[in-house]
């Protein structure tokens, strides 16, 4: 349990660093670290399949997508970076304060832990749940992936009149 708490603290700090980082690349790296720590937590919660998905897709693929998107945009000049960081600092310095206040408030507020499951899958295997119990959802998932692929094809399509 102590290791879980340690990982949760590190993950929250990584998330905080992600949103407060000056450069977009550093923010992306922070997001990857957050995902990696979440993977360890998921693995410790007896969910190895979800952990593998989280590690390969969220830590790997999404980071690559972000880095490629950032590399296709124009980098800021040194003067612009300094101005943007000052502006960001002005808007984001409230966040640590809000987090500390929320943490203090949550210490006094008791989070109810008694949850009753609406549906019990008991000893079922994850593959059984995915392919038998959630068959209709799988169709939806396939449609979402196709929609995503079509969206990317449309968005990244070069115009004919463009050089």
């Amino acid at each position: 349990m102590n290791l879980n708490i340690f990982l949760l603290v590190i993950m929250t700090l990584a998330a905080l660093w992600t949103v407060m980082a000056r450069s977009l690349l550093k923010a992306t790296m922070g997001l990857a670290i957050t995902s990696a720590i979440l993977t360890i937590l998921i693995f410790r919660m007896a969910s190895p399949l979800a952990a593998v998905f989280e590690l390969s897709v969220c830590t790997g693929l999404i980071t690559v997508v972000f880095v490629s998107t950032i590399s296709m945009t124009k980098p800021l000049t040194h003067k612009e970076i300094i101005e943007a960081s000052k502006d960001r600092l002005k808007r984001f310095w409230y966040l640590p304060v809000i987090m500390i206040l929320a943490a203090i408030g949550l210490c006094f507020l008791k989070i109810p832990g008694d949850i009753k499951p609406a549906l019990s899958t008991g000893t079922m295997d994850v593959r059984n749940v995915l392919w038998n119990l959630r068959q209709l959802d799988m169709f939806g998932q396939v449609i979402i992936i196709i929609a995503g692929a079509l969206g990317v094809a449309i968005l990244f399509k070069e115009r004919k009149d463009e050089p």
Binding site: L49, A50, P117, L119, T121, V129, R134, I144, I145
Partner: peptide
């Protein structure tokens, strides 16, 4: 309900990527 939670997380991850 670890199996159900894992299957839901896989769905969430797929949608997240899209």
């Amino acid at each position: 309900n670890v199996a159900l939670a894992q299957s839901l997380v896989i769905t969430v991850i797929v949608i997240e990527v899209v």
